[in-house]
Design a protein around this nucleic acid. Structure first.
Lengths: 125, 125
DNA sequence: GTACTATTGGCAATCATATGTCATTAGCAG
DNA sequence: CTGCTAATGACATATGATTGCCAATAGTAC
């Protein structure tokens, strides 16, 4: 079961790496199909799952939306996300207000937090 | 087309009002069926949609989860949500770190924001 | 170049959520 | 109490995301 280095896998990996923002499965497909004509959604799902298992990418959950995916190394730096209400794209934003612990009720244990900013991106504003 | 005051509608409304936290459709059903045996999911969906149209309740979107619903009046006060990673329930938390505008990239326009705290509730901690 | 088999991609199938259908039930006005 | 019909609930169907299947394709080791 030796791994093989296919053009599809390279294209999908490149697309996620180059995006600089979390991509949905359809977005990955649309971008990668430019590189590899005939690329199918089925393959995108498979390669994305493999990258997830490898820990190369991480899922980004957005309220009311299917998961997006971004490079694990990009996710190492604490950051949050901006969701454009018009084009539906998700962007990384840096910084964090902090002080989440103040909001936690007594007896509750905080593990992590997610902030989603909603609005319009520079292209849609 | 005169509205009728049915036991099902009363039970569903009461359950959402009494919960003090956002409830999912299955949660509403499980709680309201105690009041009205035989209550069906189909009816919960219908009544919830009607309450949404009336503006009596509002949807609460949690990353990677189906919508929850809470009283509109409860949502008037700015607040956020705590999602228990064990029991999967969602709770309201008060307060807000503020300063979201600092995170918005140039050219982007901020409309709203959502914060989801993840961790363990007092019963699961 | 050959052989072996991991990988691909089209299609069907699955899974969870949500809605349409319609005969039956039960508010409400009189 | 009676009649009208809004509302209910079991069932079938729709919808969207994801996976199973399998014959065809294409990396790789030799």
């Amino acid at each position: 079961m030796t791994r093989r280095n296919t053009s599809q896998q390279r294209a999908i990996g490149d697309v996620i790496k180059a995006a600089g923002r979390p991509l949905s499965i359809p977005e990955i497909n649309e971008l990668a199909v430019e590189e590899v004509p005939g690329l199918g959604l089925r393959t995108v799902y498979r390669v994305v799952n493999r990258l997830l298992e490898d820990g190369a990418i991480v899922p980004v959950a957005v309220p009311g939306q299917p998961d997006r995916y971004e490079m694990a190394e990009a996710a190492e730096r604490h950051h949050h996300h901006f969701h454009c209400l018009n084009c539906d794209r998700v962007f990384d934003v840096h910084g964090c207000p902090g002080r989440m612990d103040r909001m936690v009720p007594d007896g509750f244990v905080l593990d992590s937090h997610e902030i989603t900013l909603n609005g319009w991106c520079d292209q849609c504003a």
